[in-house]
Simulated assay, not measured.
Amino acid sequence: MLHSFRFLVKTLLLVAVGACLSYGQVASPKADVKLLKAVPDRLKVEPALLTATDLSRISDDELFSRYRKTVVMEGRINNFMDQPTGDKAVRRYLVGQKHELSKQAIRIGEELARRNEQKVNAKWSHNRAFWAHEVQRMKQFFLANVETRQKTGKNLTCVNTFRRGVSFLYDRSGDVRKSRNPLVRYGLSVPPDNSIEALMARAQVCGMASPARVVQCISPWGRKIEEGNWDKPVKLNENVWDVLMGMVNDDPRYSVFCLSLADGYHVATLTVDNRDRSNPRLYWADQTNNHNDGWEEYQKKDSGHPTKYSKNSVRGLNEYILYAIQEFWKRDDPHNRPTPIIRIWRLYNNPSRSHLYTELKG
């Protein structure tokens, strides 16, 4: 008993000493000053850009200016990080700065989207829904993209597939590679990084997307799984089909959504055909060949076969989403699993700040 007590005391003392040493290393002001001096002036971020201020009190123009400065700094850091050389401590520091800038950009996007939502919803559905020929351009891209994958084994990532596909909604010429449309050239077609939250923040700032609608999963203990929690998902806390139809808001024509599964682990494009408002139809598109030919229809009720597409039986949206999230949760290392959270953004057909797109070139 005495031996065990002594061992416990020694262990606690060692932990305490280690913590003190670590704290001293992190908190050394001399080390911080030396590190900051080593950072190039063009990569030093204005402290104001990282301040968690009350964004609701800032005007639209000031928010846009703040956002532009943020993405410009992100771009500079990205360019620096692309170079293989450089001080390792400086690179680690800049990675942290970029992460903080990205969080602030997402906050700005959500705030502007919240303000824009009131304006968009107050107008006729032309500001929200898309026409059949616009959706047809996007659909043809998804079909061709999956066909290319099947033939060559090469494909875009899920985020870049979404970005490229929805660009066809806004490009009136039908060829985004040669488009002169600023919505395409400086908007969703620009790949700043592979974070869907950062991409949708850019769309929100330019009036192209709604605020994110979050759907959570339920843990085996009956609790909602919050961000940063890796509990096993056993069911959804809401019916995603009903959430989407609520966001459609009974608009005629087509409504297009960005779907983020498992905290951005996978991204898909959902399209609701609401021309017959008594019988809306929903289609799923992504970069995989798991969804028919790249444009698979889903329904509200469960089918009993969420794992595999069938020509004779339409899969249920909710059952497939839960199955996919559970698969993503199982695939990764237990210490690095994606948070089982779903985010949904609605795309708007008539961006309210399109004239500001060219300012995003940075």
Rank of each mutant, 00 (worst) to 15 (best):
S210K: 01
K178P: 02
S219F: 05
V190W: 04
Y186C: 00
S255Q: 13
R180Q: 14
L259C: 02
E226A: 15
L259Y: 00
W221Q: 11
V267M: 10
I225N: 02
T271Y: 03
G246F: 03
R253Q: 10
R177D: 15
V234T: 13
S219R: 08
P233W: 13
V215F: 04
S219V: 06
V248N: 08
D175Y: 05
K235S: 15
L188G: 11
T269L: 05
R172S: 14
S210R: 00
A262N: 01
A262V: 03
H266S: 09
L270S: 08
R223P: 08
G228P: 13
D193F: 08
R223W: 07
V205S: 01
V215R: 00
D193T: 13
A201D: 06
S173W: 12
P192T: 12
I218C: 05
D231R: 14
R202M: 05
N181V: 13
D175L: 12
A198R: 08
D231Q: 12
P252N: 12
R180S: 15
S195Q: 06
W230C: 07
H266Q: 15
A268D: 07
S260Q: 09
S173I: 11
V214L: 03
G187Y: 03
L244D: 01
D242V: 07
L259P: 00
S195E: 02
Y254C: 04
A268R: 03
G246P: 11
E238K: 08
Q216S: 09
A198C: 05
T269D: 01
G174M: 14
K235D: 10
R202N: 04
T269W: 03
N239R: 05
P192L: 14
G174A: 11
